[in-house]
């Protein structure tokens, strides 16, 4: 088993640098799987907004990561959301997704304010082809196979234990 820095050094995870200003402090962390890094570097740049808004998907994600990383308040279910537990489960499996108008980033919190993203897609595709459960399964499989020290994940779907500073939507 390994720590996050060891997995980072081995190329199993990558730290996403939020490019904060000189007067900002990184208060939440975000790592990506190799698959998500490749998607962010190769696919994201060419995407246009399906919502036909000024900000491109890349700009939307940069702004969300800035908010997330600098510790500014997030809005539950608008910026981040959990999968609800299945009927047979007493508790959710701890898979969450970050949201922008045009993007969904699926992953999990290994500690409070520490997110590991594994897979991303456009909101349009995820909804059109109903990809939510498929991506949920892919996150769980990646997490299970990752030799990260236990506990690998915060279980459940309670936002209070994964994000330190958030508000509920109006």
């Amino acid at each position: 088993m390994a720590t996050i820095p060891q997995l980072d050094a081995a190329g199993s995870l990558f730290k996403l640098d939020p490019a904060l200003d000189d007067d900002e402090q990184e208060l939440r962390l975000l790592h990506t799987s190799p698959r998500l890094r490749a998607w962010l570097e190769n696919e994201l740049q060419g995407l246009q907004s399906a919502a036909n808004i000024e900000m491109t998907p890349a700009e939307q994600l940069d702004a969300l990561i800035h908010t997330y990383s600098s510790g500014l308040p997030l809005v539950f279910e608008r910026d981040f959301k959990a999968f609800q537990p299945k009927p047979v489960q007493p508790i959710g499996d701890g898979v969450w997704y970050l949201k922008t108008p045009d993007l969904r980033i699926f992953g999990w919190f290994w500690r409070m304010d520490c997110f590991i993203g594994h897979v991303a897609d456009t909101t349009e595709r995820v909804k059109q082809f109903d990809l939510y459960q498929g991506y949920r399964g892919e996150v769980i499989r990646f997490r299970d196979g990752l030799p990260l020290d236990e506990p690998k994940s915060i279980p459940g779907d309670d936002p209070n234990v994964v994000i330190s500073n958030y508000d509920l939507p109006d």
Binding site: K15, L16, D17, P18, R37, A58, D62
Partner: peptide, 9 residues
């Protein structure tokens, strides 16, 4: 540590 950024102007 191998970090990366989202490419954006």
């Amino acid at each position: 540590m191998s970090s990366f950024q989202i490419t954006i102007s």
